[in-house]
Design a protein around this nucleic acid. Structure first.
Lengths: 189, 189
DNA sequence: CCAAGACTTGACCGAACGGTCTACTAGCCT
DNA sequence: AGGCTAGTAGACCGTTCGGTCAAGTCTTGG
């Protein structure tokens, strides 16, 4: 399991790159060079070329993020603490990577217009998976309206990613943590 | 005032494009073609080339957004209503443009890494201007901790932009409106 | 043992990229 | 008028873009 297949290396490398620079900022040749895979192999595994590769890379990155959410939440006693752990973890990752690794989906989502519609399905499916996972966790903790709360949490977190990356200051994420209680405990109507 | 100068047309066109597709997604030749300005003029007005043009376009787009915030808030009676008006307006713009026009700063911010550091200053300055404007409005409405609240509102709004654009559903922004009271205007400590 | 697919390899392609350069025009000052 | 500067105009440059392809090698089943 030390050696990864060409396809895996392509996907992992592309995921890292779109994570930082998005779809347009990631070039095929850069993926090839950084992964050490020749061009022909790419078009063998991904007949649709760049679009196919990036779709799979998005899916891959989304899975990594979800895993991190679950790891961060594991063993937490209250729903507030679970959500806080995610935010703290993401703030730390952002800082340690010098604000390179935020949310892989958001980076691609914002630059996506009509021409790149093929990516929307992956984005939607990934966000739904995240929402499902968070809602499941919250429901387990007896939180009412778990799905809505999960969506609201994601919105807060995504906003935190944007502000933190733009202003190079992870406190824009950490500052959200004390706001989680009113978010999780307060019911609207 | 019917005819705009070449420089103005370049900036306005570039702003529109980065708004939708970000820095890497916007090509010089596309700006040239859409604005009808020849190449030589661009490099006369912007000796630094693409980077200079995009910096100015970012600044321009940021100003347009700020104007929209202020127009939306104008005449509102309570701070909740003012912030809600901004969100409703942005949700409507997003829908009417088929999810093309979200936040121009966020799109660029997320794809920015070390190589494109020259953009960070503009992003930081623009976000601070927005925060200032919102904090000023909130302070005027006797809200305590106006600056923090303004930052929190922006975080919420940016998150809404990301989710709404990714999932092609402006309700991810509208859903935030009833949360403004408990989340933004309630004091914690 | 060999035929057939799966996969690798890199040369090659046309188009688009961002950027430079020279020539030209338009307005302004003396 | 002449000279000067700001701005226009687009041909041209080298590089990189995403993508194709023919020729290889490896792997597997019969």
């Amino acid at each position: 399991m030390v050696e990864k297949s060409s396809k895996d290396r392509l996907v992992a490398t592309a995921a890292k790159l779109i994570w930082q620079k998005g779809y347009f900022g990631t070039g095929i040749s850069e993926v090839l060079q950084k992964s050490g895979v020749p061009k022909g192999s790419l078009y063998h595994h991904f007949p649709d070329g760049k679009m196919g590769l990036i779709r799979e890379a998005l899916h891959h990155a989304s899975g990594i993020m979800l895993q991190q959410y679950e790891t961060a939440m594991r063993g937490t006693k209250t729903p507030e603490k679970g959500l806080a752990a995610i935010m703290e973890h993401m703030a730390a990752v952002l800082e340690e990577s010098e604000f390179r690794y935020g949310c892989p989906l958001a980076t691609v989502a914002l630059e996506t217009t009509g021409e790149t519609n093929a990516l929307i399905q992956v984005l939607q499916a990934s966000y739904e998976m995240w929402e499902d996972a968070l809602a499941g966790y919250l429901a387990l903790k007896q939180v009412r309206g778990a799905r809505d709360k999960a969506g609201l949490f994601l919105t807060l977190l995504e906003g935190g990613f944007v502000l933190a990356k733009a202003r190079r200051d992870a406190s824009f994420i950490r500052r959200l943590i004390p706001r989680l209680s009113p978010l999780v405990l307060t019911d609207i109507d």
